[in-house]
Structure formats: C-alpha cells, structure tokens
Design a protein around this nucleic acid. Structure first.
Length: 426
RNA sequence: GGCCCCAUCGUCUAGCCCGGUCUAGGACGCUAGAUUCUCAUUCUAGUAACACGGGUUCGAAUCCCGUUGGGGCUACCA
C-alpha cells in the first residue's frame, strides 16, 4: 500500500513551500488509496514549540488536509534511534567520536537515485563525508532518524523538495546499512519568490497563516500551490483537492522550479469567491464584519449586500472596504471623487431635486428609484449618469460600487435622502 | 570552490519521454474595444517565449554535447 508522510518541524509557522509539499503528498496518497502520515520532527528540543505545532495542524485542517492515524513524534523515539545506531556501531559500520556515533561512508562508489520526477540522479560517495547518526548530546541527526522512521513506518514514497536531493544518497546509505527496503523518491522543484530567489520573509508573507489573515480562501491556496509544478489539464485553472485526486499523476509533475505569483493567486481567489455558495460566503463575511466591531441588525439586507458585492471581491477584506457605507454613517469619502462629482455647479441642485422626489416615493424600490432618476434627467435635459455619479458619491463616498439604485434600496429611503441632502448642502 | 537540479511569453504552464500535425496552445498580468450608471463581472482583440552555440537528422522546442544563466546542498539545523 502506498504510504507517504509529511514531516514538518515545529520550529516555525507553516511555510507556503511546506504547505505545497503537504498538499502534493496528500493528493498522491488519496489518489492511490494510500495512507498520508504525519511525522513531527521535533528533535530540536530548544527550537520546537507547541504553539507552532498547534498552528501547523490547524493550518493543515484549514487547507482541507487530513492525515491517517495519530502524528508520530520523533522526540518520543530517541531509544529507537540509539538502538539502531548502536547496532551499526556493533557491526563495525560506525565509530564513536566522543559520545557521538558516526557512520563510516565507503569511498569510491556510485549511488543512483531513480527519482520519480527528475529521473536518474547519480552521486559518488567520494563527495560524501562520514555521517553523524547520534550527536554528542544523544539526540539523532536528521538524515539518520529520518531513515529509521521512514523504514519503521514503511513509507513507500518520499515526496519532498529539491533541497533534499543531496540528502538522498546519504539516506540511501543508511537504508542499506540497516537492511531496510528503499522507498521511491520524488523531488519537487522549489517554489521561488517573484525575483527568483528562495521564497523567504523578505518577499513578504510566506506562511499559510498570513494568507489566511489576508483573506485568501483555503480552496484558493490549495488550488494555487498544487498547480505550481503540476497542471490539471489544458484550459483548467480552477481545481479542488477532490478533483486533483482524480487527475494527479506523480510523473506529470514538472522538474522546473516555479515562482510564486501573488497576482495570479489574487485572481484565483476572486474566481473562488465568485463561485462560492453565497450562504457560505455570507457566514465568512459576517464573522469578519462582526469582528470589526460592527453589529449586523438586518440579516436580509446583509445578504443583499453580499450578493451585490460577491462578484467584486478579490479577497474577503475587500468587502468592508467596499461596503462600509452600508454599516456606518462615518464612511470613507474619496477626495478625488468628491471634487469631480460633488464640487460641481449644478450637481448639488440635481441632488436636492432627486432627494425631494425620492422623499415622496411610496415604494422605495430599485425600479421605482431608477424611474424617478431617469425622469428627472429627461426633464432637465441631462444624461442619467450626470445624476447617478454624484448620487453614488453622496450616499457611499465612493466612485465605484454596485448598481446605484440597488445600493439605494438597500440603504433605505431615510438614510439615502439624508445623505443626499447633506451632500447637497455641503 | 566541490557536488547536484533546472532552462518555452514578464509570471504559471501545454507540447518534450514516443522528432514532422508548433507560422508554439492556454491562464495571470498588461493594452485596446464592446456591454453597463461607475467599479467589478462578461465578451472580443492585441501583447509576448522555445537562453546561446555546436552536433545528430531529410526535418529539433522536442535527442546529444558544450557555454551561459538561475537554483539547491556542502552543520553534531531540520
């Protein structure tokens, strides 16, 4: 049975690159009907923190990744590592240096990796130094405990970043010494920043947590990350994890490194928001609005607002920015728009006339409001837009937004008229 | 420095393994236009790439070698 693992080190937040590795492993396991294990590489007792681990697990769940069984902690397996190290020592395959146990690397030999993504990669042991298995403090060295664990867990496929390619021959040496069966290796090219350098803090946000905070959907992030180095097919940009499980083939993965492009991520997020069930989006936005200290008093109206703006959102925080005029009277006012539409001779008078007409309107509906507006425009020989733009500015403080008449209906007669009059007098 | 990976539009990619159908396809971005009360959406059009040099071949983006360029590793970190 195919068994893969994701092995994060809880010494920091979940990095986008790690998230991509986790996603690909998960997709592969599910596509093969195999197991996806989680191993916590917490041998560094000083740098490993529970908070990081909790956050990593939470982020994985958020992304839609579930794992099989309980996580395995390397910190609980020090005895196993010592036992294996001492066995190799007893067999004469290693030597001691102080308290450390070091593996002897035989020189002059070639090691081939049959990489599932890159093809054949050849190393010579002349380039490999003797390898520490147990450090002086008794803790295991990475390459050694990694192999002991992967062998014990019967991992069949190791899918990880290209940065591990040069670790692979060292690990193969351990597999051989331990008499363990070799897994298949697949190294995926690293994800780079916009400038082609390794994706790091100086490129901006690099943790899953930050993108979550910035209003990206988990579906978007998973979609984007899995498509760096893999294509679901010609013409397909939007994919879910479930769809990927059906389409994914390890050999289809590219061996070329890719750059992270925030613009495409943002576009993709807009696509996911557009296609999202409005009810789901509503719940998400409701939480955001509420968290910002605004109380939602009319659920039906809130839904209408969400419907009006769903197509206009790229990320969820865009929502409040675009719709603050519906929730508070002290909304932001665009200075440029004010000068262009309100500080203009005649526009204020039109606003006043429009407001007066609206006040007497019995049913304050989109259609009725539009009729009044166009009627005034006709009578005064104006283009409707000459009234529309100043009015949008007056009631929302913005030059952009949903259809004006719908906005007015949702805002309600009282506030609409009040804001128009206020703008007319200012 | 040594070892290793990689090289198609600015970016993500299809094609490459099994050379001809590729005057290289799609997407993001950008530009223009249509629709609309603005924005967004939607639609249409445009922009732009096989890194370079040698081979092999009737024929190369596709195969081979070299150069250049990018990246990774080179810890008693993981």
């Amino acid at each position: 049975m195919v068994t893969v693992r994701f092995a994060p080190s809880p010494t920091g937040f979940l990095h986008l690159g790690s998230a991509r590795t986790a996603i690909v492993n998960w997709i592969y396991a599910r596509s093969q009907g195999g197991k996806f294990l989680l191993r916590i590489e917490d041998t560094d007792q000083v740098r490993s923190k529970d908070e990081f681990l909790e956050e990593i697990l939470e982020d994985m769940k958020w992304l839609g990744l579930d794992w099989d069984g309980e996580p395995i902690y390397q910190s609980h397996r020090f005895d196993a590592y010592r036992e294996k190290a001492e066995k190799l020592l007893a067999e004469g395959k290693a030597y001691k240096e102080g308290e450390a146990i070091i593996f002897k690397v035989a020189k002059g030999r070639t090691i081939d990796i049959d990489d599932q993504i890159h093809g054949k990669i050849t190393f010579n042991t002349d380039d490999i130094k003797d390898q520490v298995m147990l450090k002086s403090d008794g803790s295991p060295a990475y390459n050694f405990c990694c192999v002991v664990d992967d062998a014990d867990l019967a991992i069949t496929h190791i899918i990880r970043g290209d940065d591990h390619i040069s670790n692979t021959p060292k690990q193969i040496l351990f597999y051989e010494a331990l008499g363990a069966e070799l897994p298949k290796f697949a190294h995926m090219p690293l994800m780079m920043g916009a400038d082609g350098a390794k994706l790091s803090k100086r490129h901006g946000a690099v943790s899953v947590e930050e993108y979550k905070k910035d209003g990206f959907l988990p579906e978007t992030l998973a979609n984007y990350l899995m498509c760096l180095g893999w294509s679901p097919g010609e013409g397909v940009e939007k994919v879910t994890l479930a769809e990927a499980v059906k389409l994914f083939k390890l050999e289809d993965m590219s061996d070329t490194q890719a750059r992270f492009d925030i613009k495409k991520l943002t576009w993709l997020n807009g696509e996911h928001i557009k296609d999202m069930d409005t009810g789901k989006l509503l719940d998400l936005l409701k939480k955001q609005v509420t968290d910002s200290g605004i109380e939602i008093t009319d659920d039906a109206k809130f839904r209408e607002i969400v419907e009006m703006y769903q197509v206009r959102l790229k990320t969820s925080p865009d929502f409040l920015e675009l719709t603050d005029c519906f929730f508070k009277d002290e909304f932001d006012v665009e200075e440029k728009g004010k000068r262009k539409y309100l500080d203009v001779e005649g526009n204020k008078e039109n606003l006043k006339i429009f407001a007066d007409e609206l006040e007497g309107l019995p049913d304050f509906t989109t259609d009725a409001i539009e009729f009044v507006c166009r009627d005034i425009a006709d009578n005064r020989q104006l283009k409707a837009s000459q009234i529309i733009h100043p009015t949008r500015m007056a009631i929302s403080g913005k030059t952009r937004g949903a259809g004006l008449f719908e906005m007015m209906e949702v805002l309600g007669k009282e506030k609409t008229v009040e804001r128009m009059r206020k703008a007319a007098l200012a």
